[in-house]
Write a protein that binds this DNA or RNA. Sequence first.
DNA 1: AAAATATATGAACATGTATTTATATGTATG
DNA 2: CATACATATAAATACATGTTCATATATTTT
Lengths: 112, 112
Amino acid sequence: MKPQRRPLSNMGTEEDISQLAELFRLMGDTSRLRIILKCLHTPISVSDIATQLELSQSLVSHHLRLLRTARVVRSERRGKQVFYVAADEHIQCVIEDMVAHISEPDQNEEDD
Amino acid sequence: MKPQRRPLSNMGTEEDISQLAELFRLMGDTSRLRIILKCLHTPISVSDIATQLELSQSLVSHHLRLLRTARVVRSERRGKQVFYVAADEHIQCVIEDMVAHISEPDQNEEDD
DNA sequence: AAAATATATGAACATGTATTTATATGTATG
DNA sequence: CATACATATAAATACATGTTCATATATTTT
């Protein structure tokens, strides 16, 4: 079930906006976005992400640290491996909404 | 009414991901995000955005061009002024979902 | 305890980009 | 047509950041 839609009226503090922008910024890199997509549904280990996405282990780890600090993903240790998964369902909602936006028909008065 | 939730399964092409990331990247800057928020509900002129946000006219115009090219906002000329407004409701949904994510309680095993 | 495996971290580099300054384009008005 | 007003654009700069390479930490296994 989708969370209720809260008005954006009372979230105008600079602090909120910085935090919002930070989250969007993190999702605004193709490597990180692909990593997030891998973590969306089920937990996945760092090495699996690296091999599946053909990214270096170091790079994946760097990105995961940023994502974890921003609470986009959370981590869970299982033996030698560490599994990462999206922090909550909202991450998926955000992406789905943006996909919906992309597939929206264009209606601007001026041409490009 | 919220748009239906489409599975993210069949949107794995590199092209889609690049476009997605580009949109998130654009929203990942505080100046641009504040501009977007100003355009969310009703059309607003460039100069009004600039004065209300205390940003230079040039900077606002630069950002609006990027946002318009990416179809985050659309423009409409009214006499000397140009009004900008969010391209569709999905933009607002994306932001609302992210706000919901921020206010979500943390549940990670490890502390920071 | 040593070796092996998985992950994390630090420094360096190269690239990208937000912002400013100056100027140009477009639109209405005297 | 010239002036004023609103917006757009170009070049330059300062800063941020994605990626790589090398190395460290953590956990299991022999």
